[in-house]
Each structure stands twice: as C-alpha cells, then as structure tokens.
C-alpha cells in the first residue's frame, strides 16, 4: 500500500496539540467554574463573582488601573511612533532598535530596576500604591503600544498626506483628518496589548511591594488557597472579556499585528 503524503496533513500534529493543550484546558476551567467541590453543577461561583464586594471591587479597580495605564501609554507612545515614522530611514531603524531592546530583557528584572529607583525617590513604596502600579505597568508595557502604532504609520500611504496638504490643509489638519484615522488599527492593537495585561499582570505589583489587588492577583490567591472553582470562574470572566474585545475590534485590526510582539526581527 502506498502512503500518500499531502501538504495539508502537516497541520495535524499542531491541530491535535491545540485541541489538547489549548481547548481542553479552557473546557476544564469552564467545567470547574460551574461546579462545586462535589462535582455538581452550580451557578454559585458565577453569582458569587458578581455579588462579592471583593471581586467586583477588584474588577473595577483593575479596570481603572488598566484605563489609566492604557491612556498614559497611548499619550507617550503615539508621538514616539509618529516621530519615528517621519524620520529618515537610516536613523529610523537605529531609533526603533532602542525602543525594542527593553522587550528582550526579562520584565521582572526591568521592574526590579524601576523598583530601586522608585524606592530611592519615595522612601517607602507602600505610600503610593496606585501611582506605583501605574508607573510600573506603563514602564513595562510601553513598547507594546509603540510597535503596533509604528507599524501602521509606516505602511501608511504618504501620497494621501501630500494630497491633503496640496489641497490646502495645514499640518495639524492633515494629521487630524488623514494620519490619525488611518492609524487607528495600530492604536486599537496597542490598546488590546496593554489593557488586558494591565488588568492581570500582578507580578509587577508584587515586585513593587504593592498590597493592592488586580484581577490577576485574585487568580493567584485562589490558586494558592487550592480553590480551583472560584479561580476558574475568574479565569472564565477574564477570558470572556478578552474574547468579546477581540470580536469587537477584530474587523478594525490587522490580525498579523498580533505578531508585533516579534516585529523586532
């Protein structure tokens, strides 16, 4: 018997891998979220999530943190990306490398460096938990906002900007009416890459000796307490948030932008 080799069969190992280690864990967490310790179906965890002052408070607090961090990253990153995209090619590549290098250094080491600086300035880090969280996360996530905006700006058709100025628009008006709207896919990608990590990356808070809780910290603490069911419910809620956000923004962003994390090469 002759075995036929077909190109499309190459995807079978990866498809099996994804089903086993991506889909199955999600289903298991879904199962745990809607069962209790005896394995019976229950809505207790779901109801508990939305009625507990602790979880709802943490959800609101993390969203506030994530909102401020995202806005701050955007305010710093957009001009950086814009200036980079306008500079001459030779200098542009060199500058871009400078903004990419931090992504290659372990984030715990970078945040530790920031912690030492903040400690030297503030003395006791415990006095400013919110500000320190915002600074720490902005510090860590800034490159993830710069890159997608930069890649969108760089692909932008220069003729459109020239046409706008030929037709009498000044620089500011050209930016507002042409460049900014066309760069929105990059901005949305950047927001997606900053907002969710800002809600969940609790290690940055840990390193900064922060005693406040964000959503990720809740998963960590329920995990340490062997409370899989409540931990699973929080995971499912977070998953639902990302899933909804992705569905909404999907048509505005370029899916290849997800690889921006590696656009350094």
């Amino acid at each position: 018997m002759k075995i036929y080799f077909s190109r499309k069969n190459l995807c079978i190992p990866y498809a099996l891998f994804l089903v086993l280690f991506v889909i199955a864990p999600v289903l298991v967490v879904l199962y745990y979220a809607f069962t209790n310790g005896e394995g019976q179906f229950t809505l207790e965890n779901l109801v508990g999530f939305f009625t507990s002052a602790n979880t709802i408070g943490t959800l609101i607090y993390s969203m506030a943190v994530a909102f401020v961090v995202t806005v701050l990253c955007l305010v710093i990153a957009y001009p950086v990306a814009y200036i980079l995209s306008k500079s001459r090619i030779k200098r542009r590549n060199g500058l871009l490398i400078l903004f990419i290098i931090p992504m290659w250094i372990n984030f715990t080491l970078r945040v530790t460096a920031l912690k030492e600086v903040l400690s030297a300035i503030e003395g006791n880090l415990a006095y400013y938990p919110f500000i320190n969280t915002v600074i720490g996360q902005t510090y860590d996530f800034l490159p993830f906002m710069i890159l997608p905006i930069y890649t969108t700006l760089i692909k932008l058709d220069k003729d459109l900007e020239e046409a706008a100025s030929d037709l009498g628009a000044n620089d500011f008006r050209t930016f507002l009416k042409v460049t900014l709207p066309l760069s929105m896919p990059g901005v949305i990608s950047g927001i997606m890459m900053v907002f969710l990590p800002a809600m969940t990356n609790y290690v940055i808070l840990d390193i900064l000796y922060n005693s406040t809780y964000i959503m990720g910290s809740l998963i960590g603490s329920y995990f340490s307490a062997y409370n899989w069911h409540t931990g699973s419910m929080i995971s499912i809620v977070l998953f639902a948030i990302v899933f909804a956000a992705t569905l909404i923004t999907n048509k505005y962003t370029d899916i290849d932008n997800a690889a921006d994390r590696g656009a350094m090469l």
Binding site: V19, F21, I23, P25, L196, M199, S235, F239
Partner: peptide, 22 residues
C-alpha cells in the same frame, strides 16, 4: 481560531488553565 486563543488570553489565565488541566 484555536491558535489565537493563547495570543489574546492573559498569561495568568493560560498558566492557570494548563495547570488545572495537566
């Protein structure tokens, strides 16, 4: 679609769910 799940998911959720499953 399956490939996109770990990309968009929070790392803490990915880690937690793999741990629970395995």
């Amino acid at each position: 679609g399956m490939n996109h799940i770990p990309v968009i998911n929070a790392d803490v959720v990915t880690g937690f769910s793999i741990c629970i499953f395995l």
